[in-house]
Design a protein around this nucleic acid. Sequence first.
DNA 1: CAACGCCATTCACATATATGAACGAAAACA
DNA 2: TGTTTTCGTTCATATATGTGAATGGCGTTG
Lengths: 265, 265
Amino acid sequence: MAHTDIATPATADAAGVKSARRAVELLEAFGANHAWLSLTDLHHHTGIPRSSLHGLLRTLRDVGWIESDEPGTRFRLGVRALICGTAYLDRDPVMPYATDALERLRDQVGYTCHYARLNGPDIVYLQTRESRTSAHLVSRVGRTLPAHATALGKVLLAELADDELTAVLPKNLAALTELTITDRDELRSELAFIRERGYSTERGESSADKACVAAVVPYRIPGTDAMSCSMPGDRVTDAELQKVGSLLRDVAADLSQQLRRAGIR
Amino acid sequence: MAHTDIATPATADAAGVKSARRAVELLEAFGANHAWLSLTDLHHHTGIPRSSLHGLLRTLRDVGWIESDEPGTRFRLGVRALICGTAYLDRDPVMPYATDALERLRDQVGYTCHYARLNGPDIVYLQTRESRTSAHLVSRVGRTLPAHATALGKVLLAELADDELTAVLPKNLAALTELTITDRDELRSELAFIRERGYSTERGESSADKACVAAVVPYRIPGTDAMSCSMPGDRVTDAELQKVGSLLRDVAADLSQQLRRAGIR
DNA sequence: CAACGCCATTCACATATATGAACGAAAACA
DNA sequence: TGTTTTCGTTCATATATGTGAATGGCGTTG
């Protein structure tokens, strides 16, 4: 059952247009569940009464943001959500510059390169250029990963002040592999080290047999965006990691200079 | 006002939950406009009263689907729209197979390859694998182009029956270049030819100096998905175009067999 | 410097939505 | 096959939202 507090007008959290909030809540439920969802499934996910869901779902389906099967009782995300959501990339003036920088970087190092942004405790991949030789692309535009478990995330977390870090980190640092840093103190000292050096590295912390290097793109303070190179973890030496790290730092510094010159913040 | 029937003239489908419909309408307005939008801008775009917009915008901002500047009077699309929208790709069981096929194709032909889906009169790019040597990627996941102006679109339009085609085509066939087919009869005969041959080609119809070949992935009837190769238009012969065309048809047929075997429709 | 126009915001009432309960159809179970 | 449960759908009313007009801040114009 949904608990709606009666007579609490002042709480900013519960404020807003209920159906609009619910529409978005539903879209996110669909984003998080890659199967057909029935009305009752959604009721369990969101706590919204089935009778209310009925109207909302038909509305969202009519505008093409969700699709239903022929009986009209199962639903899933529709193409319009993709079309509109990816427009985020077009509206962002950073992207053309970032893409160029990414291609230059990839052509120099030969590895798969990413551009990502911090969003709360997660990083969001915004753009990728794959290695000229790689087997398979692991990531995807729009995918999120826990910041503490990735080179990209760690270098961005290192931008935060101590209290900001505390505010942003989840209660439990989820382990993606056995090597993921799950201890807050360990993470803090890792971040201090990263801050010192100007780039972050990672071996098997986000995914086994993968190594990553990342550097912040310092066009904002604190930095929100970073670039990374992803490499085969078992075939890459520490020396190589560090060589790529300083190159990365240079390319990122270059990019941010371009951005600042273009007046982009 | 007591008149209920007469009072709902302009809005085509007035049914559904109004605020949910409007929330989505706003998101689409943000998707189509890559600048900061003020409340009044949005009023002009959508016709929604400013006072109503006020509440809706704050709600959408609070859930992170749009962002505002510090005064809180300008808005644009937020990251959550990207994160959720791109989940469309994960929920689609076709994608892993399509990606594999795309990589195989790219490695065989060496050109940039796309996987796309028909959505009304447009195609939507779902996945891309770039040429090992190409300079720059023109397309992007989630981007749409008019179907009649692209090889991908034409081969998918060729799947439709005559009345379906009539229903789906826009009134005016927009010209992306001077070579875009803008005449309906010309388009129809082109589609007949494509149907015959099993793949479509295009030279400079969507973009100057670009040539494309596309084939339907026949795992549904009518087909909704297609694969294409995009090549430098000035450096590619007709013979090459046709060679790639039949290879493409084979790869697409292969993929659809995999999909059918996996029970995906 | 004053008046104007533009715009976000607020308010009170009219309209739209939310929802618990009820219903019937279809699965699941026995 | 009979019974029970589950699920989507509908309805009437309580609640939330929509909206035109009014407000006041702010930058611009005369």
